[in-house]
Design a protein around this nucleic acid. Structure first.
Lengths: 346, 346
DNA sequence: CTGAAAGCGCTTACAG
DNA sequence: CTGAAAGCGCTTACAG
């Protein structure tokens, strides 16, 4: 059995020695502090590279007292979405040595209580995933207590609150175009919960894109859903009973697309030959289904990371007495073409 | 706007002072070191409680050099499962200040390469989730290099490797009993991938339980699946074409149960009135579907945590020169009754 | 622009 | 069984 040497830990002192400078200077270079001469900066960077140095996060956060406490307040979660978001948040927070506290709430009553619990736990800020991100009530409550907030996936973020989101309008537009390019003209649309801002934008983008293409969308082709599988089932039943039947269904999220597929499968429709179905979000479900779902990918894990990063920035600013305008970060979506959509049969 | 005081950080020194002992003694009590007198132990514990002390993890891991590097080697993942597992692993590792490195591989070829990459990154141990946990090849490779392994969710763990799992046999037995108690006798069963050990056990448990109840299961009621949605679709089609139709379908996992529901919905069958469907695993999909799925809950997040804890224990033992028999931790499953199963219609 | 000293909170030898 | 000292790796004042 080969002897394994413990991975030799390269410290900042090793880097400093290798570069012939003090630990201080090495630290400054590593942290991007500009008050270092160009020559030393390069020497240090070379040493970091040569030695394969990675900062010890425990040491750093111990010294910087960077142990920020970040609350996450959610309600009514889609389990898959929350998992993915949490994954990103935990990854980022462990990098920065921040601590994450999760609170769940259901009714309005319980929203106030949950906020209270987070405050008592001494959180430095609160991240609010959907659908709570659209609740003026909760966000107002936090804001009034002077707690920094980062909203995730609101389509129309309040200016006083930082946010991470994708451009839902542009995403839905890209998907509508894709269906048009495949040759579909009779497209059914299943709307999301009208109270959620992303649902509104996705719908509007679909209608606008169809109008631009000169295609009139009959009222029967627009069916309201609630973003749930159950609502998708009912909506799909209505659309598939139409004569002539739509050749494609654009669902405002993946859960409803899964339901539409369920209806179609059982009715014996071949997907995508006889019916194309597309979703929105790219949840884990999208690759579980068969055929795999063509959808708009929302980079949820990356959004979780970004939310933590944004929050830490705000907390830091605050501790140092700066008060900046909250940032609104728009992440890139992508159109993921899988097997659930193709050209319509002629 | 109310002024917010920064959460006063209670250190181990505060606890020690409050209890009238040295920091050392406080530390020993907090870490469960038995070499402390009963009286001091109680005083310290009271102080911890009174002051609301929580250890600063950065300080701890800095001193213990506990920065273990743990690899996670996966292939062919069910996205939802992996997310949930990762969540637990990250939660635990951030508590312990361990670092997690993730490697993906597909073919056998790439398995060796992935192991090689992990070794080069200097990992202290590797956690292997399903389905790779059943690969003698990969586990053997790691074991021969002298790297500690923790296998997640193998039904039949190798003795030389630590493992975290549920009792698949008992779980499937509980579910079969549940269906029998509801009054079902004509039960179809969709098997999982026969290469996976949990699939074998789930099937055997079903057959044994039926036999004990004195019910003969015709061969037509047992259909092979591959744990995928697609295979579930085909299997359900076969079962639902039978005359007389089964009154219930027991699927070896949730993905196949979702597919069975899809077939049933489209055929216009009412669930659970005309057909009960149950799954296994309790993935996020189970609560997305409608009606929500009755299934066996596998505590995946907790299993992720346990895997990290087990691994850290092994690494620690190793560093201190101890060599113990690998532990096999069996977690509790639970039968989650939702709306997809009820008594058969008469 | 650069550095010597101190200390973040904790636990590991080392003494008794 | 208990404690005084030292140090994990890093960065924050404080000097120059």
């Amino acid at each position: 059995m080969p002897e394994r040497k413990p991975p030799a830990t390269v410290t900042i002192l090793d880097v400093a020695r290798h570069a012939g400078v003090s630990a201080m200077t090495a630290s400054r270079v590593i942290n991007g502090n500009p008050r270092v001469g160009a020559e030393l900066r390069e020497r240090v960077q070379a040493s970091v590279h040569a030695l394969g140095y990675h900062p010890n996060l425990a040491g750093r956060s111990l010294r910087t007292r960077g142990t920020a406490r970040i609350g996450v307040l959610y309600s009514n979660p889609s389990a898959a979405y929350l998992n993915e978001l949490m994954l990103g948040m935990l990854e980022q927070s462990s990098l920065s040595g921040a601590q994450v506290l999760v609170e769940k709430c259901s009714g309005l009553q319980s929203q106030r209580a949950a906020v209270q619990r987070l405050v008592e736990a001494g959180v430095d800020g609160v991240i609010v995933p959907p659908p709570l991100c659209d609740s003026a009530q909760t966000i107002g409550d936090l804001d009034q207590r002077g707690i920094p907030v980062v909203a995730v996936a609101t389509a129309t973020p309040l200016p006083e609150v930082a946010s991470v989101r994708i451009d839902d309008y542009a995403g839905a537009r890209a998907m509508a175009r894709h269906l048009l390019e495949l040759g579909h003209t009779r497209i059914g649309f299943i709307e999301g919960d009208p109270k959620h801002t992303p649902a509104q934008l996705r719908k509007q983008a679909f209608l606008d894109t169809m109008a631009e293409a000169g295609i009139e969308v009959p009222a029967t082709h627009m069916v309201v859903g609630m973003f749930t599988y159950r609502s998708g089932l009912e909506a799909a039943r209505q659309l598939l009973a139409l004569e002539p039947r739509p050749t494609a269904i654009f669902c405002s999220n993946d859960d409803m697309a899964a339901a539409a597929m369920a209806m179609a499968h059982g009715m014996g429709l071949r997907i995508p030959d006889e019916l194309s179905i597309v979703g929105f979000d790219d949840t884990p479900m999208a690759t579980t289904l068969w055929p795999e779902l063509t959808t708009i990918r929302q980079p949820v894990t990356a959004m979780g990371k970004a939310a933590i990063a944004l929050m830490l920035e705000r907390i830091r600013d605050r501790r140092e007495g700066r008060e900046r305008t909250p940032r609104h970060q728009v992440m890139k979506f992508s159109l993921v073409k899988r097997q659930s959509a193709s050209a319509p049969a002629r």
